[in-house]
Design a protein around this nucleic acid. Structure first.
Length: 256
DNA sequence: ATGGTAGTCGAACTA
């Protein structure tokens, strides 16, 4: 079972790139972030023609998450525990092929001095609360998405430049570790110890050409699912496109 | 080169 996560940065602009990638990689589950469309404008028909069912939670202009699956989708849940209908669309969960899948787009935080940074930390606390109250690490579960946090020095191209700054601040690293303490493991790190493997490169300053990136997108697996992990890797190919997303997909393979 | 680039929406905000 192949489960992938990709911050697509506007599904309207990236529709052809997405469909080409899906045809080539054929994920069983694809979690998308930053779709930036309301549900009516989501390319549901095109994806259905490729055999995918779609669960989505969109909003105008910003955010928006979706889960695409080649197998039937059930138990769809929009948002985090306790969120009202006006909350930003940053989380969606669904069950596919016996695996509980949580797809999240963690707030960026803007800067460590910003109130948005505090909101980012609180959002991660609510994610942990959602796991504690509604999920179990003793069943097959994947938590994936754009977390906007580098976990350690290997995950950022210039650790000494970014240390203590946004995406690489101990407060957000601690908040993410509290989420993982639920019973989740970084599947990429289970298979790859090397640094300089990134999932995001800023559009500016030829960052991708220089491989000046960050690993901020993850596929985490519950301790119950981890024994089924075959591999996890980052697919840089779509970042070479004419109009790429600034993120590239993370792909994890599990035995059925 | 004295910020850079991209998306949304149609000025300014987000990333």
């Amino acid at each position: 079972m192949r489960i992938a996560s990709w911050n697509i940065n506007s599904i309207r602009v990236r529709e052809d790139l997405l469909l080409d990638w899906v045809r080539r990689v054929e994920p069983d589950v694809l979690c998308l972030q930053e779709t930036k469309v309301v549900d009516d404008e989501f390319p549901t028909d095109e994806l259905m023609r490729l055999g995918y069912a779609v669960a989505m939670s969109g909003q105008p202009s910003y955010n928006g998450v979706a889960i695409l699956a080649k197998r039937p989708i059930s138990a769809i849940r929009i948002g985090l525990a306790g969120e009202g209908p006006t909350a930003e669309r940053r989380a969606i969960a669904a069950t596919v092929g016996g695996v509980r899948v949580l797809n999240v787009y963690v707030p960026n935080g803007k800067s460590i001095e910003s109130p948005s940074f505090v909101e980012k930390l609180r959002w991660l606390e609510r994610l942990r609360l959602t796991l504690d109250t509604l999920e179990s690490a003793d069943t097959p579960l994947v938590l994936c998405g754009d977390f906007n946090i580098c976990r350690d020095d290997r995950d950022v191209y210039a650790p000494d430049l970014y240390r203590g700054q946004l995406h690489f601040h101990p407060d957000e690293q601690r908040a993410l570790n509290r989420v993982l303490d639920f019973g989740l493991v970084d599947t990429f790190r289970e298979r790859h110890a090397e640094g300089a493997r990134y999932s995001f490169w800023d559009y500016r300053a030829a960052a991708f050409r220089r491989n000046e990136g960050m690993r901020i997108d993850y596929v985490f697996a519950s301790r119950a699912l981890l024994p089924r992990l075959k591999d996890c890797d980052i697919d840089n190919e779509p970042r070479h496109a004419d109009k790429p997303s600034d993120h590239t997909p993370v792909v994890a393979d599990f035995t059925d």
